[in-house]
Design a binder for these strands. Structure first.
Lengths: 143, 143
DNA sequence: GCGAAATCCTGAATGAGTCAAGAAACGGGC
DNA sequence: GCCCGTTTCTTGACTCATTCAGGATTTCGC
């Protein structure tokens, strides 16, 4: 994906096209599930003088527009990804915190229907699987 | 539930029975989905001189033992509940942050099976429904 | 190009949560 | 019922992701 594509995405969401935003979008695309610090580093490879504040603002704007998705498993800092709108979920490693994508197990949005919603109007279901990643399994069994 | 019951729970989990722990357990039981500050306040009604550190330590010990469950939706502080082991999930209001329980929509632990686990060994699936609570719906429609 | 509005920068503040070291409490064994 | 080793609690300081504020720049419709 080139910068032109990112600009398209931004314009399509009625967002102003600024260099920090394009760079943030690129950084998030190339670093799935990255935390803010990693994104900041990646953005500075493209645009050395961005402030961390601009990155926070951009991420907030992109999240609000639905272009990026913010995920934050318990005990972790915020992480971001650009794969949105396809109903996929995440596995998180309890020991190292790494995250991987998981397509929804049971077809299309079955988990979206709560049996008793207590009067809430539900618009999204988020699933987080907790477990141990292959690396950590190997590390533990070799002890 | 009386303190004797809480003591039983603690002993059953091979945890030492201390007054802060009993008080924390009581506070979490009576304040479902409460954040740490609320729990601290409730604990101090029973035991005025507990330190906040003792509450953090107790919550960590109880969580590790599986007696309480820690939940932390994105953008929220940590919250705790005592209803564990029954595969229920949560609805979170996007505008006020309130949380309600939801029994699993599709029977027993269906969401526990990821379609492709990327080599992860999954031991738990956590589902968070995002939406708007009745109060916030009313507040928004009356604007 | 021009100007209003949005966005970005610099720099400081917030606050949930953690760390550390010594004091006190728990509970198994006598 | 008391002792002792270990766990837990207290006090107090500290970390660090994230947010807030005010002024300077940039964007984009006209």
């Amino acid at each position: 994906m080139g910068n032109a594509d990112y600009e398209q995405l931004l314009r399509g969401a009625s967002l102003r096209v600024t260099r920090p935003r394009v760079a943030v979008l690129g950084a998030v695309t190339e670093n799935a599930h990255a935390d803010t610090e990693t994104i900041l580093g990646a953005v500075r490879e493209r645009l050395p003088d961005v402030s961390h504040q601009a990155v926070y603002d951009s991420l907030a704007a992109l999240s609000a527009a639905g272009i990026v998705r913010r995920i934050q498993p318990s005990g972790s800092v915020a992480r971001y990804e650009t794969r949105v709108g396809d109903n996929h979920h995440h596995v998180v490693c309890r020991s190292c915190g790494s995250i991987a994508d998981v397509d929804c197990a049971v077809g299309h949005a079955p988990c979206l229907t709560a049996s008793d919603d207590n009067g809430f109007v539900v618009d999204e279901a988020e699933v987080i699987y907790w477990g141990t990643c292959p690396q950590c399994q190997a590390a533990q069994s070799s002890k």
